[in-house]
Amino acid sequence: MIIKFTQHTLDKIEKIIEESGYVIRYERGNFQSGYCILQAKKVVVLNKFFQTEGKINTLIDLLPQLEINFDALTHESQKLYDELMTVGNDK
């Protein structure tokens, strides 16, 4: 799968995370790795100064660490999630 670093792709990845009950916030601050996960509150905070490509790569890297409820995802989100997990395992 070739990932296009567009706002549309970012929106689709954000949708997967949001469908699993997480809130995504873009904030500024001192981020060691560009993101922070507040597991108990299901909040993902990303560095708002990242370009679209950086946001997409960070969210893809985060997906395995999140509790994604596959059954709660729409069919489109399930398909993309499977593809992203396959790409992530190929790294």
Rank of each mutant, 00 (worst) to 15 (best):
V43N: 01
E53R: 15
K91V: 07
F5I: 06
I56V: 01
K12G: 00
L59C: 05
I68W: 08
V45C: 11
I37W: 13
S20E: 00
L84Y: 13
T86V: 12
I37E: 11
F49I: 06
A72Y: 07
L73D: 00
K91Q: 05
E19Y: 01
A72H: 09
D61S: 13
T52Q: 03
T74V: 04
E76V: 04
M1G: 10
V44H: 01
I37T: 11
Q65R: 14
N89Q: 11
K42I: 01
L63M: 08
F31E: 08
Q7V: 09
Y22R: 09
L10E: 03
V43I: 15
T58V: 12
I3R: 07
K91M: 11
L66S: 09
C36A: 14
M85C: 06
I24R: 07
V44S: 00
L63H: 10
L46I: 12
D82F: 13
L63W: 10
I68F: 04
M1D: 03
E83Q: 15
L10N: 00
Q65L: 14
Y26G: 02
Q39S: 12
L84P: 01
S33L: 15
D61F: 14
K79S: 14
R28Q: 14
E19W: 01
E18A: 03
V45L: 13
T6D: 04
L46F: 04
V43W: 08
K15T: 14
I56P: 00
D82S: 12
Q65Y: 15
D82Q: 14
D71N: 11
K15D: 14
D11E: 12
E27I: 09
R25V: 15
E14Q: 09
Y22K: 06
H8S: 14
T86R: 07
S33K: 12
L62S: 00
M1S: 07
D71L: 13
G29C: 07
M1L: 08
D71W: 11
T52K: 07
Y81F: 15
E18N: 02
I60L: 06
L84K: 05
I37Q: 08
K79F: 07
T58M: 08
E14G: 01
N30H: 13
D11L: 07
L38W: 11
D11G: 04
E67G: 05
T6A: 09
Y26K: 11
V23C: 10
L62E: 05
L80N: 06
D71I: 13
I13A: 00
D71Y: 11
L73T: 01
F5S: 05
G34L: 06
N47S: 09
Q51Y: 07
E14C: 09
V87Q: 08
K55Y: 05
Q78G: 01
F70V: 10
T74F: 06
Q78N: 03
G34A: 10
S33N: 14
K15P: 03
K55H: 15
L10S: 01
T52A: 03
K41H: 13
T52L: 03
F31Q: 09
K55D: 03
I24V: 11
Q39I: 07
F70P: 02
F70T: 06
E19L: 04
I60V: 15
M85H: 03
N30K: 12
G21L: 06
I24T: 05
T9P: 02
L10T: 00
N47D: 15
Q7C: 02
I16L: 04
I13L: 05
L73E: 01
K48V: 09
G54S: 08
G29V: 08
E83C: 09
A72R: 10
V45T: 08
